[in-house]
Amino acid sequence: MTLQIFILGTLSEAESHPYDIKKRLLKSLGNTIPINDGTLYYQFDVLQKKGLIQKLEVVQSDNRPEKTTYGITDKGLKALETEIYAAYQNVTSISALYATLFYLDKIDKNKLAYLIEEAIDKRQDKLKLIEDTDLDTLQIPQEKQQPLELLTDHAYHSIQSDVAWLKKLLVYVRSE
């Protein structure tokens, strides 16, 4: 869904060609969203079939392939808003939110702040659960204790990092 959010968000600001969106995506997000031409054009096809975008112009020049300009529909604008909120309601990884950052001006900041607060609370609950877990009581064989400690340590610090980032995002959203 991240790629679709980026496509819809970009088209909400201006009509564009898929290739131009790919260049903008790579410039903005680098390799955080894996993309190839097949995936990109497939997503354009999906969005068009859903009625979220539409072809505006097809230009054919002499020795070049067709160049199709797309625009977003009213239904696409509503879907963009819905998908941005959904990304924050179901945060599985922080990197899944990257594409949304460029289009936060399309949504209600108070609603977004509430969703970010919920995401922070969920992660803080996970931190508390890890802190409260006594690994010694889990009856793990001795040879498995250190791998479990490493795994737990990584999970804990990753969640801490997510919370810190979400708090920075919350400050940014509230300052807008």
Rank of each mutant, 00 (worst) to 15 (best):
Gln4His: 03
Lys167Asp: 13
Pro18Ser: 02
Pro141Trp: 04
Lys75Tyr: 06
Ile159Trp: 06
Tyr103Ser: 06
Phe6Gln: 02
Phe44Lys: 02
Ile94Asn: 00
Ile84Ala: 00
Trp165Pro: 02
Lys23Ile: 11
Leu115His: 01
Leu101Cys: 02
Leu47Ala: 04
Tyr42Cys: 00
Leu104Lys: 04
Ile120Asp: 08
Asp136Cys: 03
Asn36Gly: 12
Ile130Cys: 04
Thr152Ile: 14
Gly51Asn: 02
Val58Met: 13
Thr32Leu: 13
Ile159His: 12
Thr92Pro: 02
Gln142His: 12
His157Trp: 13
Leu52Trp: 11
His17Asp: 07
Asn36Val: 03
Lys55Cys: 04
Ile116Gln: 06
Trp165Gln: 15
Asp105Trp: 04
Ile35Gln: 04
Ser93Asp: 11
Leu169Gly: 13
Leu97Trp: 00
Leu115Cys: 03
Phe6Arg: 04
Ser16Ala: 13
Val58Glu: 15
Tyr19Ser: 12
Asn63Asp: 08
Ile33Cys: 05
Leu40Ile: 10
Ile5His: 08
Lys167Asn: 15
Gly51Trp: 03
Lys168Met: 15
Lys23Asn: 14
Leu115Lys: 05
Asp45Gly: 06
Glu118Pro: 00
Glu81Met: 01
Asp108Cys: 09
Gln124Asn: 13
Asp74Cys: 01
Thr82Leu: 09
Gln145Met: 15
Asn31Arg: 13
Gln89Cys: 09
Asn63Arg: 12
Gln43Phe: 04
Ser28Ala: 13
Tyr114Ala: 07
Leu101Pro: 01
Tyr156Ser: 07
Tyr172Asn: 02
Thr69Glu: 08
Gly71Ala: 12
Leu148Phe: 15
Leu150Met: 11
Ile84Lys: 00
Ala155Pro: 07
Leu129Gln: 10
Leu115Ile: 06
Gly38Met: 09
Ser28Gly: 02
Glu83Phe: 13
Asn31Thr: 10
Ser93Pro: 05
Arg64Glu: 10
Gln43Arg: 14
Glu118Ala: 06
Pro65Ser: 04
Val171Arg: 11
Lys128Ala: 09
Ala87Gln: 04
Asp37Glu: 14
Pro18Tyr: 02
Asp121Val: 09
Asp45Arg: 12
Lys167Val: 05
Gly71His: 02
Ser95Val: 13
Gly71Ser: 12
Asn36Thr: 09
Leu77Gln: 13
Lys122Trp: 03
Leu150Pro: 01
Leu127Asn: 05
Leu166Trp: 00
Ile33Ser: 04
Leu150Phe: 11
Asn110Lys: 13
Leu148Thr: 14
Ser16Glu: 08
Asn36Cys: 05
Val173Trp: 02
Thr69Ser: 11
Leu101Trp: 06
Ile130Gln: 02
Thr39Met: 09
Thr69Val: 14
